[in-house]
Structures are given as structure tokens and as C-alpha cells.
Design a protein around this nucleic acid. Structure first.
Length: 289
DNA sequence: AGAGCTACCTGAAGGC
DNA sequence: TGCCTTCAGGTAGCTC
């Protein structure tokens, strides 16, 4: 499910209840998610204080006062729900409320804090994963060591793409999905960014003129920032930790819009869908060249 | 090294 | 109603 904007939305929802909180009780209702939970998962977490809640790409990072960092990835269908003693949820406008079906079957990990909040991790498809990594080793862990820059940071710029695309035959769709190029993009936002930049997902990346990579960089930053601002995209499983739905799906220009007119002003094209590298690519064959 | 494919696992949705 | 097929936002690991 979640790409960078959705994970950032989850982070912002969880931060008030987890940052600075001490874990009084942790339950793992099964020994594995996508991967086995690490040895002593429950014991190493119980009693620990969460110093902060950070995000790197699509990962949530919770450094603990005991030297480990709890690393969490939501996979495709991972979701957190907060049951807090305070009235945070009740203060949400009614039209944001999400009908949550009872889903004990997929409640895999439950965190309870000394402050009285319960945070439950649900993941029907179980593509998500959690691990405990010594905090001073996180940057060297295989998940992070080769990861590209954060797309919304100054570390990501046109020169990032110039270097990544140089001489490559694969289309930009494929290279932008590769977390080593830039970290945090997924299928939806790559499709959207390429459409905004009017670049074909299939054009050999090495043949894309360098002067077009500045606008592509801008398109990536813009689409992500706009999505973060409205709480991500709610498709099927995604809702913020407080149950609020994201709204960016209403702003999709190409994703899941096969057969609809291209929204580019003056373009008479029709949005098409093709499978590329095993994933659905949505694009306008007319204005994306 | 780079490119392309599959696997992981489950649920939802559509066709018949 | 029910069975079957197809598809899904991510990542890792295999082969050529």
C-alpha cells in the first residue's frame, strides 16, 4: 500500500503517542510477518522508551533508549491503529471517520505504552516486516546502506537523476522504482511524476535529455509534497493511524485512470495502462514522450 | 553489472 | 450463491 506520503502520514499519526513513550507491554501474535521477528523481539521492546519516531524512505524508525532501533515497514497492506485514552480521535471531524471492521485475525503486533495508548499493527497480506537493529548500525544495514537520497531533501536533485540515468536502457519508471536511485517512490507516484514531466515511462533512461531531468526532479518533489499535505492516498487499505483517510487519490492524473482523457491541458490523449517490469504503468501515449 | 522475472501471502472484485 | 481468475501500493532474490 504505502509509498512515502502514506508512511509519512502514518508517522505523523503515531508520533504523538509513541515519541517519548515507554512500552509497558508488547505482544506478537505470531512469530513472523514477511520475515521472522528478531530473537527476543518482545523482551527487547518491553520497558524500553521510544526516543523519536523517524522515517527513512518507506521505513519507520523508532530509536529506543536501550541502543536498538525498532524498524518497521508496512509492505503493501500494513496499517496501524491507535486506541488512546485521550479524545484525539473523537475530535476528528465526522466525515474523516473510518468504519473499521473488527480485524483481530490480522492484528499481528500490539504495543501498549505506560501513558495508556495501545497501538496495533494490522497486515492482512503480511508483506510488512519489523526488526530490531542496533541504532549505530542502522545506516550500515542492507536495507539502508545502498538506499538513494530522500526525494524531499536537498540531497535529491537533477544531478541524482543525471547520474542514475546515464547510459541506462531501462525506462525511468523502472529506475525510479528502484530505491537505490531515490528512496520512497512507489508505483503510483512514479506514474504521476512522469506524467507531470511529460516523460515516457518506457524511453531508455540514458536517452532522456539532461535538461528534462530538472523538471522531472521538480515533478517528483511536487507530487510527493502535495500528497503528504493531504494525508496520502487512500486506496483499499490505507488510512492514517487515527483512521483518517488521505485525499490524494482524487488528484491522480494517470494512476488507475485507464481509458480516461489525459488531463494535460490541450492534450487529446487517452490514459493507457501497460505492464512494465511486472507492474501496471499508467501513462499518456500522446504527451509523454 | 544490468535486465527481467518470480516469489512472498491474502483479500477483494469481477466473470460466469 | 459460489467457484474461478485476476489483480493489488513493496522488496528480495534468482537467472541469464
Amino acid at each position: 500500500m504505502p509509498e512515502l506520503p502514506e508512511v509519512e502520514t502514518v508517522r505523523r499519526g503515531l508520533e504523538p503517542v509513541l515519541s517519548g513513550a515507554r512500552l509497558s507491554r508488547v505482544r506478537a501474535n505470531r512469530p513472523d510477518l514477511r520475515f521472522p521477528l528478531p530473537d527476543g523481539f518482545v523482551q527487547r521492546l518491553t520497558g524500553a522508551r521510544i526516543l523519536r519516531l523517524d522515517r527513512r524512505a518507506k521505513y519507520l524508525l523508532a530509536p529506543l533508549d536501550r541502543g536498538d532501533t525498532l524498524v518497521m515497514h508496512l509492505g503493501m497492506t500494513g496499517r496501524f491503529e491507535i486506541a488512546a485514552p485521550s479524545s484525539d480521535r473523537a475530535t476528528r471531524p465526522g466525515d474523516f471517520a473510518r468504519e473499521v471492521k473488527p480485524d483481530d485475525k490480522h492484528a499481528h503486533v500490539v504495543f501498549e505504552t505506560e501513558e495508556g495508548a495501545t497501538v496495533t499493527y494490522y497486515d492482512p497480506r503480511r508483506f510488512g516486516f519489523m526488526d530490531l537493529i542496533p541504532t549505530d548500525r542502522v545506516d550500515h544495514h542492507p536495507w539502508f546502506a545502498t538506499m538513494g537520497p530522500e526525494p524531499l531533501s536537498d540531497a535529491f536533485g537533477a544531478r541524482t537523476l543525471v547520474a542514475a540515468f546515464n547510459g541506462r536502457k531501462q525506462g525511468p519508471k523502472t529506475l525510479l522504482l528502484d530505491q537505490k536511485t531515490v528512496a520512497g517512490l512507489g508505483n503510483i507516484y512514479v506514474c504521476e511524476a512522469l506524467h507531470r514531466a511529460h516523460i515516457s515511462p518506457f524511453k531508455p533512461s540514458g536517452l532522456i535529455a539532461g535538461k528534462r531531468l530538472g523538471p522531472l526532479t521538480t515533478a517528483i518533489k511536487d507530487v510527493l509534497a502535495e500528497a503528504v499535505e493531504v494525508g496520502g492516498s487512500s486506496l483499499k487499505d490505507f488510512a492514517a493511524a487515527d483512521g483518517a483517510l488521505g485525499y490524494f487519490q482524487h488528484r491522480f492524473r494517470v494512476y488507475d485512470r485507464e481509458g480516461q482523457p489525459c488531463p494535460t491541458p490541450g492534450c487529446k490523449g487517452t490514459i493507457a495502462r501497460e505492464v512494465q517490469a511486472g507492474r501496471s504503468t499508467f501513462f499518456c501515449p500522446v504527451c509523454q514522450v
